[in-house]
Design a protein around this nucleic acid. Structure first.
Length: 346
DNA sequence: TACCCGTGGCG
DNA sequence: TCGCCAAGGGT
């Protein structure tokens, strides 16, 4: 692992922050004014999610719920509708829990240290450090995927970033480097660096503003970093989606309160072992495929005629289900159903 | 620790 | 088409 002198640390900070002043993404909406609420909303949305995807969601969310008090008082349905399509829906539920905690238990007084911020639901070590540094000026590194990638290359740190225990190694290496005057800018600059010159694929280190501090580049071994072990492949699961119609209405089923897509409405889904197990009328030749982080669903739409809804089922008119927050996979299934309808009419 | 938890972009 | 990835957190 590479070690820097005090002089090198100061030179790195200056090169990084000068570049950030000139070339940073200052147009991002959550960087306009750095209050705790906007930072919390943006950071929760940005977890495992691309910046380009988040921008529109963030603007809509802040327009609808501009203050932590508004979020705390909002119906959960509204919060989930604003989150619809973003994925990882526990983030939305945790965000509102955090807002309620700040408003109701702390009387609107935000926790300001990273340790206290980490007590909020949905706020872990990274997000706590990000908010503390950006909104409150605490001198801590915000260790996310960008920072792991950037510093693994700069300092030739070969700890496996997929391993949680590697966090401590990076923290100890980076903490002395964070700029004590501008910790929030430092953390944001590292993220911008990590999404531009030092991105995962096809990095452009030759033109990087901190090229001369990049040990892995100097040694011609940049592609060896970061070290990251592979994830397991998603497990394939087959489902029969049982479509019952009543005129324009469709029968939906509410998923269990815990687990994948908790509490969301989908068509009744029955797990099957093979296509031979399908009962009712199979409506198409190839399954609807939806891949989650750890599951691959292959779903066969079938027409059945279920007489009465069960306790966790309801008929919804088009106007009703369009007002719901539905997961992407259910939108895919509805689209497929309409596609089949159109074909059969001709 | 290992696994759970969504989605869309990209080579 | 497929595998991998992108500003993680909860359990």
């Amino acid at each position: 692992m590479e070690e820097w002198t005090d002089k090198e640390i100061q030179g790195f900070r200056k090169a990084l922050l000068d570049w950030y002043d000139q070339e940073g993404r200052h147009d991002l909406p959550w960087r306009k004014k750095r209050d705790a609420y906007g930072t919390l909303v943006s950071e929760l949305m940005l977890q495992q999610t691309r910046v380009d995807t988040v921008v529109d969601y963030y603007n809509r969310f802040m327009e609808a719920l501009p203050t932590v008090e508004a979020l705390a008082a909002a119906p959960e349905d509204q919060v989930l509708k604003l989150w619809e399509g973003l994925g990882y829906y526990s983030r939305a539920r945790n965000l509102q829990k955090a807002a309620k905690y700040v408003v109701n238990d702390l009387h609107g007084n935000w926790p300001q240290s990273s340790d206290d911020l980490a007590e909020l639901p949905g706020v872990g070590p990274y997000t706590a450090a990000a908010i503390a540094s950006m909104a409150f000026g605490e001198v801590v590194p915000a260790l996310d995927g960008n920072m792991y990638r950037v510093f693994s290359r700069l300092l030739e740190i070969d700890a496996d970033i997929a391993q949680p225990k590697s966090r401590k190694i990076f923290y100890q290496a980076v903490a002395p480097i964070v700029d004590p005057e501008q910790p929030g800018d430092f953390n944001q600059a590292i993220m911008d660096l990590g999404s531009s010159y030092m991105k995962t694929k096809n990095p452009d280190t030759l033109h990087s503003p901190v090229k001369e501090y990049n040990a892995a580049y100097r040694d011609g071994i940049e592609e060896q970093f970061p070290v990251k072990s592979k994830k397991a492949k998603p497990v394939k699961v087959l489902y029969q989606a049982q479509v019952t119609r009543r005129g324009e209405k469709l029968l939906f089923e509410k998923r269990p309160a815990e687990g994948l897509l908790a509490n969301f409405w989908t068509f009744p889904l029955k797990e099957i072992n093979s296509v031979e197990d399908l009962a009712g009328e199979q409506l198409h030749i190839k399954p609807v495929v939806h891949v989650f982080s750890h599951r691959r669903w292959e779903i066969w739409l079938t027409a059945i005629d279920q007489a009465e809804p069960k306790e966790n089922q309801r008929f919804f008119s088009p106007e009703e289900w369009q007002a719901l927050s539905l997961p992407k996979v259910q939108h895919k299934l509805i689209d497929k159903l309409h596609e089949v309808d159109d074909v059969s009419e001709h």
